[in-house]
Design a protein around this nucleic acid. Structure first.
Lengths: 102, 102
DNA sequence: TTTGTGTTTAGCTAAATAACGAAATATGAG
DNA sequence: CTCATATTTCGTTATTTAGCTAAACACAAA
């Protein structure tokens, strides 16, 4: 649980997850989108891997990362439940709207 | 956003939030529940205050902390939306169940 | 096998974090 | 005013983190 929140605490890593939501991408493709060295980005990927938020698929010379959305969902929901939010054990992917915001 | 996740990244602080969900408590009452010094706990409270996750009410000689649940909910939901989870702008407190888990 | 490309690891630095005890601050009681 | 209590702030230490460059590793192609 701590590992998930630590992973999410960095804006670069949140942005990586957001990019991976669109489609799986290689480490290089991801790194291109940020103003940091590939080594630094590699360290960010390692944190996301540790938190089990991404899967890495080594193919040939490059590594493709993809988002493990259910791990993220389940993690956030598990936490929400410890606070009594969403006590009804809903899966996020099936939430339906009951009230519009704003 | 980062501040919220940083606050949640520590298990002691998550537990504080959980305790505050039951009822508001003074700094001292909270600190009693943990094996750390009051100074250490005070630093944790400061992080929670920085993230705006708790309100502090000074009354007499003691300070009562209370959970700002809506800030937490809105923060988590705002993040969820950046990932396309719960795109329908639901407030967590009004979620209704559509599928049981487990 | 050599070369090139993609990625990670190693080694470093600066800044942030979590913990402590001791000191400072604020308030209510006497 | 003085004392006791509640809480925070200060100063220190050890650990972790985010960034860098350079080196190493893995693999595909020539």
């Amino acid at each position: 649980m701590s590992e998930i929140f630590k992973a999410l605490a960095d804006p670069t890593r949140r942005r990586v997850l957001q990019l991976l939501r669109e489609r799986p991408m290689t480490a290089g493709e991801l790194a291109e989108q940020f103003p940091f060295s590939k080594a630094t980005m590699s360290a960010h990927f390692a944190v996301l891997r540790e938190a089990d938020l991404v899967a890495s698929d080594k193919r040939g010379t490059s590594i493709t990362y993809s988002l493990k959305l259910s791990v993220l969902e389940d993690g956030l929901l598990a936490f929400a439940e410890t606070l009594g939010i969403g006590t009804s054990k809903v899966r996020a992917s099936t939430i339906i709207s009951t009230e519009e915001k704003g």
